Simulated scan of single mutants.
Amino acid sequence: MTRDSFDAIVLGVGGMGSAAVSHLAARGVDVLGLERYDIPHGRGSSHGETRIFRLTQPEHPEYVPLARRARELWRELEAETGVDLLTETGSIHAGPADGETVADALESCRAHDLPHELLTESELAERFPAFDLPAGHRAVYQPDGGYLDCERAVTTHVNRAHDHGAVVRARERVRGWEPRESGVRVRTDRDVYEAEHLVVTAGAWAAGQLEVLSDALTPKRRVMIWLRPETPERFAPETFPVFRADVPDGSFYGFPVHERPGFKFGRTPRYAETVDPDDWRDEPTPEDETLLRRLPENHLRGGAGPTMAMETCLVTESTDGHFYLDTHPDYPHVSIAAGFTGHGFKFCSVVGETLADFVTEGDTDNPIGVHRLAGRT
């Protein structure tokens, strides 16, 4: 017979949920993780081989202390498990000299005394020969950036949770939950469970589980591509940092070659396609490929080789671009992490710690002021 009572239940075991289950189990919490797909899976935003890690946070300077804590926790997880997760390559934020991307990156670095360099487009090309940015562009280089192996990170967190006694069940869809006199009751397509605490880390499906965020989350479709470079030596981790670049063809981000036979990059469209997470066009199209290839064709020397792979992912945007990380305004025993707007995976480790703080301590000392729900929903 299956157990039906736990101290805490985590809804969604992707990047954030796997970290939450891991941290809760390590603290001795009897925890159940429920995932509707596989662990890991490719239906959300915790797949695609790599995700950027950076201390430079142009989204908001307050993100920097959270990123620093995330980095500490990733390194602690590596040391404990013996699994390599974070590869440091340095990070680039590039764009027009008078543009917001460069100005905000500089503000982030200066406000938190991060080591950095401001490079002209010529200096960037001399340092990292693959880049060929337009005249008048600038790049903020920060040496501590890099990339996380995202599927390996999910798996490592779940394995660690299992080692500490957690129960994790995949291919089990949550139909709904309700508060009880004490705790919550969760109904799935297989069973009914009860717990003292609930943690919602359901990604694009969080709005369906949280009425408080029903109008505050927007799932959108994004496409990633891997190209085999014509000059592979320019796209190795030692010579090609992770980057965000605003160029005339759009706003792009990318990575060096990792394990697949190609380097990966994507495009952040100004007006992305809003989708239903249960019914969306998950197969990349030739039009997607054409838009993406504009970057290497125009701004990456030796990068416009043959396509090796393409994948789609779901990015769930919040109303103001800052993710939600807090306890429920009406049910303090319900914790929420949602709306990561395409730049959340780097924070998985510290989000998991924060959610464990909510369950075991009632609050957290981590710097999450901009992510609280009050006044935003």
Rank of each mutant, 00 (worst) to 15 (best):
T201W: 00
T201G: 02
T201A: 10
T201H: 02
T201K: 01
A202G: 11
A202V: 06
G203N: 03
G203W: 04
G203K: 02
A204Y: 06
A204N: 07
A204P: 11
A204S: 13
A204I: 07
W205A: 07
A206Y: 10
A206W: 03
G208D: 14
G208F: 08
Q209G: 04
L210E: 05
L210P: 08
L210A: 00
E211F: 04
E211H: 15
V212A: 06
L213G: 11
S214Q: 15
S214Y: 08
D215G: 14
D215Q: 12
A216C: 12
A216R: 14
A216G: 11
L217I: 09
L217V: 12
L217C: 13
T218A: 13
T218Y: 13
T218K: 14
P219C: 11
P219H: 10
P219G: 13
P219A: 09
P219Q: 11
K220Y: 01
K220L: 08
K220D: 05
R221S: 11
R221F: 10
R221T: 12
R222A: 15
R222W: 15
R222I: 13
V223Y: 07
V223E: 04
V223S: 08
M224R: 09
M224S: 13
I225V: 15
I225K: 03
W226S: 08
W226F: 07
R228T: 11
R228E: 14
R228N: 04
R228C: 02
R228D: 07
P229G: 11
P229N: 07
E230K: 10
E230H: 05
E230L: 14
E230P: 05
T231H: 04
P232E: 07
E233M: 00
R234I: 02
F235A: 09
F235L: 00
F235G: 07
F235S: 05
A236V: 12
A236Q: 14
P237V: 03
P237H: 00
E238S: 11
E238W: 03
E238T: 08
F240K: 05
F240I: 02
F240H: 10
F240E: 04
F240T: 03
F240N: 07
P241S: 04
V242S: 10
V242K: 05
V242M: 08
V242P: 12
V242A: 03
F243G: 09
